[in-house]
Design a protein around this nucleic acid. Structure first.
Length: 638
DNA sequence: AACAGTGTTGTGTGC
DNA sequence: CGCACACAACACTGT
C-alpha cells in the first residue's frame, strides 16, 4: 500500500499541544506531512476585524509561533502559508502534490461548515481521504445538542446535564515529539485571486493590500504574512498571541494555586488594569493556541489539590469554560439565525432603535453585517458616542476606549457597556453592539459574542431586565478613586474622586483645579484637548423608560421567528399597547421616516479614521436584495 | 398542575 | 464594612 502523503490543514487550531486532529494525522504514519495554513478571503475581506485582531492572526503571533515550533521539531518543516481560498486551492493542490490524506480539526460556525463540506467533496472527487477530529470545545457541540433533545442549550444547567450525558471531557493529548518531512511543493498552477469587491476591512488599511501576491507569498517561501502585506498599520494592543505565550500564561495562572482554585468570576474587578483580574486566556482559545480541554484539566488538577475552599461552577474557572460550551452548543443547534433576531425562535423580539437591514439568502432572511436603519437620529448619536467612548459617563467611556485601543475589556465591563447600549440606557439594538465588539475584540468568538449580547439585552439566556447596571455605581463598587477612569479618560485624570464618575455634578472650582472643561458631544470637530463631553442623558430617567419599555415588550412576547415580526405587523401590537420607546419612534428631531443611511451606517466604527470604505460598501449595498423587513419599512413610510 | 426555589456577575437604603 | 431587604418580577427546574 502507498504510504500516506498528508496535508495537515491548520485553521482555528494554531497549536501542537492537545490537538486530536494532529494526532490523527500522525497516526497515519505519513511518508510526508505538509503543515499548511490557507489564507481565506472570507476572513480577510468579509469579516470585519481591527488590526489588533489581525496581529493575533498574523506574522508575529499565532502563525509565526506555530511555524517556529514546527521547525524545532523538524528543521525541514514549518507552517506553510498558501495565499488562496481553500475552495479553489485544494483541488489543484491534491493533484500537484499527489496527496493521499487531508486532515483538519472541525470548526462549528456556519461559514466554516459550508467551506469544509465543499473541500471534503472536492477531496472525495480527487480520491483524497479526509480525516477530521474535534477539539474546539470541551465536548463536541453536536453531541451536546443531541443529548439535549436536539435543542439549543439555553442555560448552564442544560449544558451541564447534556455534557455529562456525552461523557467525560477528553484528557489532553501531549504535543508530538517528531514531525515528518514535508514533501515537494510544486506550484505549477495559476493562483485564483480573491475578488475584493466587498472589503469590510478597507477602512483599516493604510496601504494597498498585497496579501494575495502569489500563492507562496512575495518571497515564494510560503512565509507567514505580515501586517504590512495586508496594508494594516501596527496594532495598538499590548496583548500578544501564540501557543508558547498561551501555555506560559496558563502555567502562570495555575502556579498561583489559590487564585486558580478559588476564582469566582463575579468577584473579579472590571476596573483592574495592572494587572487585569481575569486570566486573559480567551483570545488564545479563540485562535486555538490554547486547548480548552487542557485549560479545563489543569484547572481541575489545581482545584483537587487545593481541596476545601475551592470555587465551583458556574463561578469557577471551569465554569467559565462551561459557559463557552453552552454558547457553542446553542449556536450548533440554531445554526445561522443564532447571531441575529430575525428567524431566530430563541431570541425575544424587542423593537430596539437602529435595527439591522436584512437580505434574502439561501438559508432565509438574514441580517447584513454592519448595515442598519437609522430610525432615530437621537439613538444614532447615542450609538456613535457610545462606540467612540464619548458618552459623558466616564466609566462607560473608559471601557469603550480600552476596548478600542487594546481589543480587550473585562467581562463585567462588557456587561456594563452592553446593558447601557441596549435595555439600560440607549435602547439600541443589541446587534449594533455585537457588530462593534466583533470588530474590536481580540478574543471575538461569534458564538460567545452573540450569546452574551442576547444575555445582556435580556433577549435570550437571561431575562431579569430590572437588574440594570448603573454607569456610576457599578464602577464605584470596585474602584472608589476612579483609577481606571484616570487611566483611560486622561481629560479627567485630576478630577476629585467625588466627581470622577459623574463630572456633570462637579463644581466649577473642581473642574478648574482638574484643568478640564465639560462641553460638547465629543464627536468629530468637537474633540478638543482638555475637554470632556457633556453627559448624553439623565441615566435614572432613561433607566425608567427602558425598564417600562422592556416590560411592555415582554408582555407582548414576540420572538424572532414570529410572523408579526417578519411581516411588520408587530408595530400595531406595540402601538395598541401604547408603547413609545421603540423602533420608528425617533425622538424630537425625527421625521418619522427611515433615513437611507447605508453610507453613514457603513462607517459606524471609524472614529477619526479615513472614510475610504465607501466604494467597497456601495457595491455591497447594490447587491442587497429586498427582504421582508424592507417591505415593512416601506409600508411604514407610505 | 400549581407553586416554590433558583438563577455566575444590580441598585439603593438602612442597620 | 458587611449584610438584609425592597424594588418589580422573568424563565426554568423540580416537586
Amino acid at each position: 500500500m502507498m504510504k500516506a502523503r498528508v496535508i495537515y490543514w491548520f485553521r482555528t487550531d494554531l497549536r501542537l499541544h492537545d490537538s486530536p486532529a494532529l494526532k490523527a494525522a500522525l497516526d497515519l504514519q505519513p511518508e510526508v506531512l505538509w503543515p499548511i495554513f490557507t489564507w481565506d478571503p472570507h476572513y480577510v475581506y468579509h469579516v470585519k476585524a481591527s488590526p489588533n485582531r489581525w496581529q493575533y492572526m498574523a506574522r508575529l503571533d499565532c502563525q509565526q509561533d506555530l511555524s517556529d515550533s514546527i521547525q524545532k521539531l523538524n528543521p525541514k518543516s514549518k507552517l506553510f502559508v498558501l495565499r488562496e481560498a481553500p475552495q479553489t486551492l485544494f483541488p489543484k493542490l491534491f493533484a500537484a502534490w499527489n496527496v493521499t490524506h487531508l486532515v483538519f480539526e472541525r470548526d462549528t460556525d456556519t461559514y466554516a461548515r459550508e467551506r469544509d463540506k465543499f473541500v471534503t467533496d472536492a477531496a472525495q472527487k480527487a480520491g483524497v481521504k479526509v480525516v477530521t477530529r474535534y477539539g474546539r470545545t470541551l465536548w463536541d457541540s453536536d453531541e451536546v445538542v443531541a443529548k439535549n433533545g436536539g435543542k439549543p442549550t439555553m442555560s448552564i444547567t442544560q449544558l451541564q446535564a447534556a455534557g455529562s450525558k456525552v461523557g467525560e471531557i477528553p484528557k489532553p493529548i501531549p504535543a508530538p515529539q517528531h514531525l515528518p518531512d514535508p514533501g515537494e511543493m510544486p506550484i505549477d498552477f495559476e493562483q485564483e485571486v480573491a475578488a475584493k469587491t466587498v472589503d469590510l476591512n478597507a477602512p483599516h488599511r493604510s496601504k494597498a493590500d498585497k496579501a494575495y501576491k502569489g500563492i507562496a507569498g512575495p518571497k515564494g517561501d510560503f512565509a507567514v504574512e505580515t501586517l504590512e502585506e495586508l496594508g494594516f498599520p501596527a496594532a495598538t494592543t499590548p496583548h500578544r498571541g501564540g501557543e508558547t505565550l498561551a501555555l506560559k500564561q496558563l502555567e502562570k495562572i495555575m502556579a498561583d494555586e489559590k487564585y486558580a482554585a478559588t476564582f469566582r468570576k463575579p468577584k473579579t474587578s472590571p476596573a483592574a488594569f495592572e494587572p487585569q483580574s481575569t486570566t486573559l486566556l480567551s483570545p488564545h482559545m479563540h485562535f486555538g493556541a490554547l486547548s480548552p480541554r487542557l485549560f479545563y484539566w489543569r484547572a481541575r488538577e489545581v482545584v483537587e489539590k487545593y481541596g476545601k475552599g475551592a470555587s465551583t461552577p458556574p463561578e469557577s474557572l471551569t465554569g467559565q469554560l462551561l459557559f463557552r460550551d453552552m454558547y457553542f452548543a446553542a449556536q450548533a443547534a440554531i445554526g445561522s439565525p443564532y447571531k441575529q433576531t430575525i428567524n431566530n425562535a430563541y431570541v425575544r423580539f424587542i423593537p430596539w432603535h437602529l435595527p439591522s437591514k436584512y437580505e434574502d439568502t439561501e438559508t432565509g432572511v438574514s441580517a447584513i453585517s454592519g448595515k442598519y436603519h437609522i430610525d432615530s437620529p437621537q439613538a444614532e448619536k447615542w450609538f456613535q458616542r457610545w462606540q467612540a467612548g464619548m458618552t459623558g459617563f466616564p466609566f462607560v467611556d473608559a471601557l469603550m476606549r480600552q476596548l478600542r485601543v487594546e481589543g480587550w475589556i473585562h467581562h463585567l465591563g462588557r456587561h456594563m457597556v452592553a446593558c447601557f447600549l441596549t435595555r439600560g440606557g440607549c435602547y439600541v439594538h443589541w446587534e449594533r453592539g455585537a457588530d462593534v465588539f466583533e470588530e474590536l475584540l481580540i478574543d471575538h468568538e461569534p458564538a460567545s459574542n452573540a450569546g452574551n449580547w442576547q444575555w445582556l439585552s435580556c433577549t435570550a439566556f437571561f431575562s431579569q431586565y430590572f437588574r440594570c447596571y448603573s454607569p456610576v455605581a457599578f464602577g464605584q463598587k470596585w474602584d472608589k478613586n476612579g483609577d481606571f477612569i484616570r487611566r483611560w479618560v486622561p481629560e479627567l485624570e485630576h478630577l476629585d474622586a467625588k466627581y470622577i464618575y459623574e463630572p456633570w455634578k462637579a463644581t466649577q472650582a473642581a473642574l478648574d483645579r482638574a484643568g478640564v472643561r465639560v462641553e460638547g458631544d465629543g464627536l468629530g470637530d468637537n474633540q478638543k484637548k482638555g475637554v470632556y463631553p457633556q453627559v448624553m442623558f439623565d441615566f435614572q430617567e432613561r433607566r425608567g423608560i427602558c425598564i417600562s419599555a422592556m416590560k411592555r415588550a415582554f408582555s407582548i412576547g414576540l420572538h424572532g421567528n414570529d410572523e408579526a415580526v417578519k411581516d411588520g405587523t408587530w408595530k400595531k401590537l406595540f402601538e395598541k399597547a401604547g408603547e413609545i420607546e421603540m423602533e420608528g419612534m425617533g425622538g424630537s428631531d425625527d421625521d418619522g421616516e427611515y433615513a437611507d443611511d447605508a453610507d453613514s451606517a457603513s462607517h459606524h466604527t471609524s472614529k477619526g479614521r479615513g472614510r475610504d470604505g465607501s466604494k467597497h460598501a456601495s457595491s455591497k449595498r447594490d447587491a442587497v436584495k429586498e427582504g421582508p423587513m424592507d417591505r415593512h419599512i416601506k409600508k411604514l413610510k407610505a
